[in-house]
Write a protein that binds this DNA or RNA. Structure first.
Lengths: 235, 235
DNA sequence: ATGCTCAGAACCGTATACGGTTTTTGCGGG
DNA sequence: CCCGCAAAAACCGTATACGGTTCTGAGCAT
């Protein structure tokens, strides 16, 4: 029952992180350490530490009643995208320069998965393929710190992501931008990758902002004045 | 003895973080949760959680014998500076654009502190004033995510920083670059701030690389083949 | 029926305890 | 004097326990 070599908190952490990436945790659902501990057959501490780590990294917020995925404000989205615009086009250009055939194949397979999922209207598959695509080109980024930072910033958008693909026109535009980036990767042209990634960033920002704006409006009309006590800040 | 409003782990975390910023923890010294707990009159858990948080953020590494400040490889330095080059010039330009008189005063005061510390050959004061200068202009950055990310990346260099100022010529060049940035801030010229910050970044990278290279050589001659078991990675 | 109050539950933060693993250290032999 | 070996210590990871705070919901009053 005990494997001392690899610790439990990392296991719980990576599992939760994966679930976050795949939008399997809704902002309304509460994460409680005791529940996670019970479902894994472990004690509270590892589960709690994993949750705290996610809080420290900004993915979750601690409320008085369990942990919840962090909801991004419009300012958050703008700010996060400003950082992403500084990093991702450049990093993608590096990736295009240093891309190996294996990674190219992964990229193409992920792209195929995305188009397939779009045709089948399978949102969860679309999200998964999307993550695959991102991770594929990030593997070609030699700078580990750069890749980790980018990964982090992308993952913040979990809570908004689902809604982005609800609108068919937006989804199509999104896929189009991605396939153009993909083509540039295959052409091994770092500069075109950089340009198209930058365009993609701006389009994505617009999409997320409009989706989130709609979400906020809906929430406002649904429950006019509901206080959500949040004790622990993002530090 | 119990203040439930503000928790102990945050207190320990911020204290350790401050000490790290000020280079008050040497890479050779080991941080042990029980010691920290005892010195604060608390139990192991808060101290331990604070340490784990610092590990998760990449400031510390967990060894089999306590925690230690992370030692940067030459690749780490290059990679970290690549990210910094993408972020800091741009952020500084934004800060120059949105600077308030109060922050300007802080900047000038920090700059004075730096020159004073340099004249007095007071390294710890120099480090403190350096942190002040950085924090001052970062306060003018409206984008909280940008500021936090930059802060994070700068703090990684704690373990190398002290040696940077040992060489008088390097120190002078460093201060000169900083004072030129300061002047550009005062002139409210975002573009010049951006350019000078970029120049500063390249110079700083060179300085850190050479210092670290020397450190590594020294360490190698000192103890030829000493294995340092590090269990927990940077995730 | 609606608003208020108080008891109970849920959950967080911290403390203490225990087992396992790795490093150190002290001792005896080469 | 140096090297191996075994006992002991140090430290980490996990489990369990307890007190405090906040939310909830039922009962009571208006």
């Amino acid at each position: 029952m005990k494997k001392p070599t690899d610790n439990l908190v990392d296991a719980v952490y990576t599992e939760l992180r994966m679930k976050l990436q795949r939008s399997e945790i809704s902002p309304s659902g509460r994460l409680v350490d005791t529940e996670i501990a019970a479902s894994h057959g472990i004690s509270r501490m590892p589960a709690r530490e994993a949750l705290l780590r996610l809080v420290a990294e900004g993915y979750l917020v601690g409320t008085t009643r369990g942990f919840a995925v962090r909801e991004l404000s419009l300012e958050d989205i703008s700010g996060l995208f400003e950082v992403r615009r500084q990093l991702e086009p450049r990093a993608a250009a590096c990736a295009a320069r240093d891309m190996t055939p294996e990674i190219e194949a992964e990229l193409t397979s992920a792209m195929a998965g995305i188009e397939q999922a779009l045709d089948a209207n399978n949102i969860s598959a679309l999200l998964a393929a999307n993550v695959d695509f991102r991770n594929a080109w990030l593997k070609a980024v030699n700078n580990a710190h750069m890749a980790a930072t980018i990964s982090r910033f992308i993952d913040y958008f979990q809570s908004v992501r689902l809604g982005t693909f609800a609108n068919a026109a937006t989804a199509e535009q999104y896929i189009d931008g991605l396939s153009r980036i993909h083509a540039a990767f295959l052409a091994h042209d770092p500069l075109i990758v950089q340009d198209r990634m930058m365009l993609f960033m701006f389009a994505a920002e617009e999409a997320y902002l409009s989706v989130r704006r709609r979400q906020l409006e809906e929430a406002e009309t649904l429950r006019p004045a509901r206080k959500r006590t949040t004790r622990r800040g993002t530090a």
